[in-house]
Each structure stands twice: as C-alpha cells, then as structure tokens.
Simulated assay, not measured.
Amino acid sequence: MVEQVRDDATSAAARGRPARLRERLSWARDRSAWRRGRVLAALAALTAGLLAFHRAVPNSPGRLGSSLEAFLPWLGLPVVVVLVLALLRRSVVALVALLLPVAAWTYLFGGLLLPAGAAADSYDLVVVQHNVSDTNTDPAGTARALADAGPDLIALEELVPPALTAYEKTLAPDYPYHAVRGTVGLWSKHPLTGTRLLDIRPRGIPEGWKRGLRTVVGTPHGEIAVYVAHLPSVRFGAGGLASSSRDESAGLLGRALAAERVERVILLGDLNGTVEDRGLAPLTSRMKVAEQGFALSFPTAFPLARIDQVMARSATVAHIRTLPATGSDHLPVVAGITGLGVDSPGSP
C-alpha cells in the first residue's frame, strides 16, 4: 500500500512538470518581462547614442571625443554583453532596445565586414603601408615579407641607419625606384619624379624632424601623386589623450593635399589615428578611406586599432587587410586600389 501511494505521488509530480515548464517558457508573454532590465535597456540606448552621435561628444577636457572615436568599433562589445544579460534576465525591453546599437554599429562598420568586392587580380594598383619600427632587428626579413605580397608600392616609416641600407639592398631587385626623406620612404615598380620633402612638422618639434615626402609615380594608368607621412604619436595619460601635435601635423598635411595639382592622389602612412578620429578630419574630409576590411594594425601583440592608413583621391581603396607580423610593433597593411584603369593587375 505504501508503495502504491509513493507511485501515485511520483506520477502526479511528473504530470505537473509540463505545466511548470510551460509557465517558465511564458516569460516573454509575462508583463514583468517588459519591466525587467530597464537598466540594460538604458545601456543599450546609451551605446547607440555614442555610436550615432560620437561627433557630438566634446573634445575637452582631455580630447574625450577623439578618445572615443579611436576605439569606436569596440562599442560592439557592450552590445554583446547587454544581449547576454538581457537573455539571462529574460528582459524583452532590453532585447528590443538592443536593436538601436545593432543598427548603428552595422551602419558604421557593417560594410567593412564584407569580403573583397573585386577579384584579387583586378586591382589597378596594390600598395603596402608599414611602420617598420626603428628597433626592428630583422629589416631584411621584413623587406622580403613585404615584397612577397607583390605590391606596386611599398611605403615605410621609422627608417633609420643602418637598417635603411638593408631595406634598399633587399628591395632593389623588384623595386628599382625609391625615394627616402628623413625617416619615411617609398619603393616603387614604376618611375618616380618630382620627389620632395613634405613639411608637416608641428610647432615645438626640432627642425631635424622629417616625416613626410611627396612624389609622382608614373603608372600604366598615368601619373599619381603619392604622399608618405608619419604623424606624431599620441599618448594616453592622466589628462586624457595628448594629440595636439598629431592634429596640427594632420592639418598641415591636409593643406598640402588640398593644394596638390595632380588629380589622382594616394596617401600612405602611420597617421597615429583611426579614420573615425576627428583629429584626422583634415585628411578624411578630402580623401576616400577603405570601403572593406578592418585591418587592425596596432599593436602587433593584440591589435586594437588601424592607425596605418591608405587613402585616395579620384580613386577607390577597395579593400584593406593586414599581413603577418614582422619585427615591428605594427602589422603591415596591404590595400587594393581601383578606379585608375583596367590594365594593371595585382593582388594584395
């Protein structure tokens, strides 16, 4: 008899389980699900606002706006965190609010995730940009790695003797034309003319500071003015982002680009800023940036931002990506340029 009672109790409990399961799964229809997670919903809305209106964030004190814009794509991480917490909290209002930052992030960066739109051999020019580091212990190996990518142009920064000799010797067989001014240089498969030092030295920096050059490359598609630049470094400290020298140098470079008479222009360089950073507005307002590819280039150990840039005027930077690490603290970036013509194959 006792066993029968126990069996009946077990059967009743089993029959009750589906009801409890249905009750638990009905959280989305529960009115409380719309009241839970209001803080999460507010965080989602704040993230969306920062993404959509980052230009409205003031740049003082401490260049707060530029600091935000330097890492703007990483605002996608809070979206993921809020999504997980919203699911754990079973909050409908938070999940609905998440549509805002998802839409804003996709609008700003979704296109960069698309695969290369052009076939690898259909680019008019292929260019490599690399800050090789003045402490690079293997300049010859770095040069070979860059040449193996098969670009038409290779722009390098932080060129110092005796490493410069190693770059010149290693690249000479495939790149018979090159120009160096100060610590920046350009190696080319095509002839160079009109090479000159580009003065982008901000106030307060000694006269020996030479980090810019301008030259004209005679390509199969006609003449292209190519600029190579290395803007001053920025630092994060107790007072925020120290970027005034970088911003001033970007302004000088922007004025030089505005005065350039050659119609088609390519800018290559370590600009110490992302294309979203308002400090580079004198450049991004005049030049096209990469349409596809994130190519986070710095630092090598854990790339957080692309501060090595390829920009173009009267041409398109169709796709950009990184190459494997060299002896530098930057990753090289390689980009395919289109809109120049149809007869110069290459592949990044």
Rank of each mutant, 00 (worst) to 15 (best):
P282Q: 08
N272H: 07
A250W: 04
H221R: 05
P78T: 09
R6L: 14
S328I: 03
D148V: 03
V126T: 15
T10S: 12
T316R: 15
L21K: 02
E158Q: 12
T316L: 03
L171I: 03
S245D: 14
R15M: 07
E260W: 07
D270N: 13
H178Y: 13
E158W: 04
L114P: 01
A238D: 12
I320M: 14
R214Q: 14
L323D: 00
A97W: 04
L25K: 07
L156Q: 04
R35W: 14
A163K: 02
A238W: 08
R20A: 14
V96T: 10
P176H: 04
H230L: 05
G62S: 12
L25F: 14
T193D: 13
P299V: 10
S188W: 09
A229N: 10
L257M: 06
T322K: 02
P73Q: 11
V57P: 03
T316Q: 10
L268A: 03
P191G: 08
P345T: 03
A163G: 01
I320Y: 06
S133V: 00
P202T: 09
P220D: 07
D343Y: 04
G218Y: 05
R264D: 02
Y177G: 04
V184D: 03
V234I: 15
T165A: 15
L186A: 03
G194I: 08
A315L: 01
G141Y: 00
I320A: 11
E69L: 05
A12Q: 12
